[in-house]
Amino acid sequence: MLKTVTRAPDVRDPLAAALVAAAAMAWLFTGDFGKEVLSEVAVFAIFAMSLDLLVGCAGLVSLGHAAFFALGAYAVAAFGVFVNLPMWMAMPLAVAVTAVAAAAAGFFAVRLGGVFFIMMTLAIGQMVYAFFLNSRAFNADDGMAGIGRVDFSFLALDSGEPAVFSAFAVCAAVAVFLLLRMVARSPFGHTLAALRRNEPRLRSLGCPVLRCKLAAFTLAGALAGFAGALAAQHNGFISPDLAFWTVSGEVLVMVIVGGMGSLSGAALGAALVILLRHHLAGLTEFWVFYLGVLFVLMVLFAEGGVAGMLSRLPRKLHRRGGNV
């Protein structure tokens, strides 16, 4: 990301444009099932992009990001079902609750270095999972059903329709992408990238690194909460499984497989993993196995993920073309 400083800023993001175009095509040309998948992809794209801010930008690997996804989902359910607030109000409140929780958890996590941070996030994720698993108010491991969706009746639209909700989810994903891109390109975002490269030096240059990491952790948590709030509406159902470690793992797989640090790579990863899961789930019961193998291979051999491969593709083609 920082590569472009002082050179012409790269305002084009062909991958992001291609993803939006693909989403539009999917929305236009698929049936209800396709649009359900599209909603799911959009929700997980938001979730993955929020994690990419931590992993790809600031270099903070979290193995417990699903904690905030689940918190957002539970909070929106609590405000929607218990307090009976309309979703337009429940959603921002859920995001605010998640932000506060992320700030509190981050307060402990960000002062730990390297591997300790990773372990702390894993523990945070399991703690939230255990909390919802034991909470009677939320029906423990049975979860809760009957969560409504945002109301578009003022536009004479029914958000129960897959077409309406998927369009809403895609717009939300684009908005989150633009927000995170703005953050990544700001001085704050560049400071996070410098932190990833050399934290001790950045600190000795006067950067309050703990506060910066906490801010990133809170923002990422809040946006994961937003994704969770959307997921709860999309499924109409929540359960402690939302916070399970496999969810944290899966979203990290999305970021790594798609290519971290570019946001659009994370969104691509979300699309790839979800489409792959829908296809593999029909073929094999052991989808997690293949996910694990893919993950290990990507970590070992493809640091830039699929987005990295794609970005190298034009150059390769060009070189080959030049030789002919």
Binding site: G292, V293, F295
Partner: peptide, 12 residues
């Protein structure tokens, strides 16, 4: 991350 991926593989 690699050892994390191994958890997935071992699980299945």
């Amino acid at each position: 991350l690699v050892t994390f991926g191994l958890i997935f593989i071992g699980f299945d």
